[in-house]
Amino acid sequence: MRILLVDDSATMRKIQRRLLTEMGYSDILEANNGKEAMKVLSDFNYEVNLVLCDMNMPEMNGIETLVAIRAITKTIPVVMCTSVAEKSAVMEAIKNGANNYLVKPFAQDAFVAKVKPFLG
C-alpha cells in the first residue's frame, strides 16, 4: 500500500507518517504542496493507494490539487484534511471527487477510522 501525504506543514506530515507507520504502512510519500503532489504522482505512474491532502496550502490549495488529480484519475481515493473552519469547503471537495474528509484537531482513532477503509 502506497500513501501520499500532501501538506505544507512538515509537522503534520510527520504526525500522519507516524500514525500510518503504527498502522503498519511504510510506503509513504510526501509532498509540500499540490504542485509537488502532482509531480510525485506522475513519478510513481499514479500507482498510489491513497492521498491524504490538506486544504489550506500555499501555491496550490487542496481543492485545486483534488481537481488536478481527478482530471487524470478517478480511481485513487483522496481524503481531505481540513480544519473545522474549512468545513464549508468540504462540500466543494466532495463535489469534486473527494472520498472523505478528516477534521483537525483529530484523535488517533478518528484518523484510523477515516483512513483504514481505503487501505483494506
Binding site: 506543514s9 512538515a10 509537522t11 504526525i15 480544519s83 473545522v84 484537531p105
Partner: peptide, 30 residues
C-alpha cells in the same frame, strides 16, 4: 504534539507551533 523530544527552538518547533495555531484558528472560526 509530534511525540519527539525538542530541546531547542528549531524547525520542528516553529512549524509545529504554526500548525497548532492554524488548528486553533480553524476551531475558533467555526
Amino acid at each position: 504534539f509530534i511525540m519527539e523530544e525538542i530541546n531547542e527552538i528549531n524547525d520542528d518547533l516553529m512549524d509545529g507551533f504554526g500548525e497548532i495555531l492554524n488548528i486553533i484558528a480553524g476551531a475558533f472560526a467555526a
